[in-house]
Simulated scan of single mutants.
Amino acid sequence: MPKKMIVLLKAGAFLAFGSSAALAASCGNTGSGFAAWKQEFAREAAAAGVGDRGLQALSSAQYADRTIAADRNQKSFNYSLEKFMQVRGADTIVAQGRKRLARDPDFYRSLEAAYGVPAGVLIAIHGMETAFGSFMGDSNVVSAITTLAYDCRRSDFFTPHALAALMMVDRGSMAAGAIGARHGELGHTQFLPGNALRYGVDGDGNGVVDLTREADALASTANYLRAKGWQPGRGYQKGEPNYSAIQEWNAAGVYQQAIAIMAQRIDG
């Protein structure tokens, strides 16, 4: 693990804009108003510091029907823990995770030394999110995240992430055509753009933060958990001090419990 961890472009300005300002762009529940919304949002993005490349990416964004369908059909919140772990292949993640840890123990030790997060937690998240990088999504990130910012259901939550995505394109840290998950997450552990901008670090020391590279994604995941209050050496099962950091990663209770259980099995 390189000693130099380069933190990605600071996101304080855009987060302040997204959280404190009353955004004027009108939300909608169908794609019919998306084009008009993009024009309104472009003015707000420019005011937040987004330049020509980011604005062009916004102009080219398409209303993402598959994103809306996925957002309205989330089943995980309704599963029992046993069903969730079965559906998500927990036993396979644990078995493969143990092999990954045995294959590169120094890498995971270096992450724990730097951030305090043990290997099992990072490996469980990696396995759960993308099956260890085997599937990182099939949707254009900018289209997906701007669609969610436009959609009335959770516009306030996704608007700062949409601004972050445009900033990343504008500054060259993400391509306008970058592919991620249906909700605009990207990389091995599926960071939303705002989190990528704020918590992304260069884990392999090549001077670039690229969450499609495994080392960068895992270092960034550890950095995120530390920022959310992870306490080195403390427990992470439900009711223990670090469980609250796992809760910050995903809102579904069954997901949180599954990560903690699988991590413990991987750590042995």
Results as ranks from 00 to 15, higher is better:
A222L: 11
R72S: 04
N73T: 09
E44R: 10
A176V: 06
Y255A: 02
I259V: 14
G31D: 03
G137I: 07
Q231M: 12
N29S: 15
A61H: 03
A175H: 07
Q237E: 05
W230I: 00
P2A: 04
G205A: 07
Y243W: 00
D267K: 12
F158C: 06
F107V: 05
R171K: 13
Y108E: 00
L9E: 15
D91L: 07
Q257G: 09
I259M: 00
D106V: 15
E248N: 14
I266S: 00
T146I: 10
D202S: 05
Q257D: 14
L55G: 05
Q96E: 14
L163H: 01
A25E: 09
G233N: 08
W230P: 00
E44N: 01
A90D: 08
G180P: 00
M174F: 00
T221N: 08
F135T: 12
E185L: 06
G12M: 11
F41H: 05
M167T: 11
H126A: 11
V121H: 06
E214W: 06
F135M: 08
G137H: 03
A114H: 11
K38V: 10
A95V: 09
A64G: 02
H161V: 09
S19H: 15
D204T: 11
I93H: 07
A22N: 14
N223D: 08
P2S: 06
I179A: 01
I6F: 12
F14Q: 13
A47W: 05
N195F: 05
M262N: 04
I123P: 04
R98C: 04
D138E: 14
S19R: 15
A176F: 10
Q257T: 15
L58W: 14
I179E: 12
G33A: 11
A64H: 08
Y79L: 15
G51Y: 04
M85H: 00
A35G: 08
I246K: 00
